[in-house]
Nucleic acid binder design. Structure first.
Lengths: 188, 188
DNA sequence: GTCTATAATTTGATAGAC
DNA sequence: GTCTATCAAATTATAGAC
């Protein structure tokens, strides 16, 4: 694969990601991608045979990058609030650059109407982020002495509030709203 | 307006609501509506001149119905947990009948790519539900002695977790997940 | 109020030249 | 790898008969 080819492919993925985050999977077209990248739509099909394939690969790359930024959950004990803050920061980064919300949050919202490959990747994003929270909270001070089902439940609650916070910040066109909404863990 | 006409109009609104909740605003067409209702697409245009008009009216009706089910916030003091539980129950109802999520949650996710009239109605749903929570929590035991900015913040946090919970339950295809995620209010 | 018919555009996708 | 050319289907929307 030549350098130019790789750049075209990456440009397509970048623009597709941006457009999906703006208007959802059904809100962009191959021709829109092509025009933005500076090629013809047939060239987009050269890299991604179908729209479902492009959508799935955009989601996969997004999830990989997101998990990469989080890093491996540490074995060593951590402060639970630092774990939550780190996750909050990763979601805030998604919002910060262009005021848009989490790609897989958008896909999740319309997932009942998506090709299975795309919906599957969106689902996988939540599996992986929930698992990261699970392991991290288990190793935290807060996690000691709590049941794994209680920890799993709180991991989902944290994720829910973060995704929901992005949703609200976006529809209200007030990105700052998200910063207000740092999830808390119950202390009882 | 004759009885049959009213029924057709309501059928259109009902089906449009269901389809948007399934696949978003860009995931349904006038012909799909027409086929499901048993008329031609030109008849759908008779009731709703444009797609944006239909989308906006679906959202408005949804919000009105949602607020109607909540009822007026009581003046009398209430238990805060009952307030949160009531809101949780209203969102659960949306999920219960067909396993789909909140209409305005879906619209919010793709709001950056929607016609302004539709995005505006989605925004209004959050304004009205947040305001209901605000007033109700202010009148609750928990609200006594707390600042209005703290109460506003927690109202948004509750909304965020509920919408995010629907998002997760839907993408995981596990409606039961939502029941687990009853928001809590901080007691410190 | 619902229909037929159709305009005008956009969509995802493919064949084949270079 | 990118292009031209094109297809078949779907889209929103309108005009006008009944």
């Amino acid at each position: 694969m030549t350098r130019e080819a790789a750049e075209t492919q990456v440009k397509i993925l970048d623009l597709a990601e941006s457009l999906i985050r703006k208007g959802g999977y059904n809100g962009f077209s191959f021709r829109e991608i092509a025009a933005g990248v500076g090629v013809k739509s047939s060239s987009v099909h050269y890299y991604f045979p179908t729209k479902a394939d492009l959508g799935a690969k955009v989601a996969r790359r997004y999830t990989d990058r997101f998990m990469d930024a989080l890093g491996e959950p540490q074995d060593a004990s951590k402060i639970a609030m630092d774990v939550v803050s780190q996750m909050h920061g990763s979601f805030a980064d998604a919002l910060a650059d262009d005021g848009q919300m989490c790609l897989c949050g958008v896909l999740a919202a319309e997932s009942a109407g998506l090709p299975t490959e795309v919906a599957g990747e969106a689902k996988e994003f939540f599996n992986r982020t929930a698992n990261w929270l699970n392991v991290s909270l288990q190793n935290s001070d807060w996690g000691k002495g709590r049941t794994s089902s209680e920890i799993e439940k709180q991991s989902l609650a944290v994720l829910a509030q973060l995704e929901g916070g992005l949703l609200i910040a976006r529809v209200q066109q007030q990105p700052d709203l998200f910063d207000l909404l740092t999830p808390r863990l119950p202390m009882d």
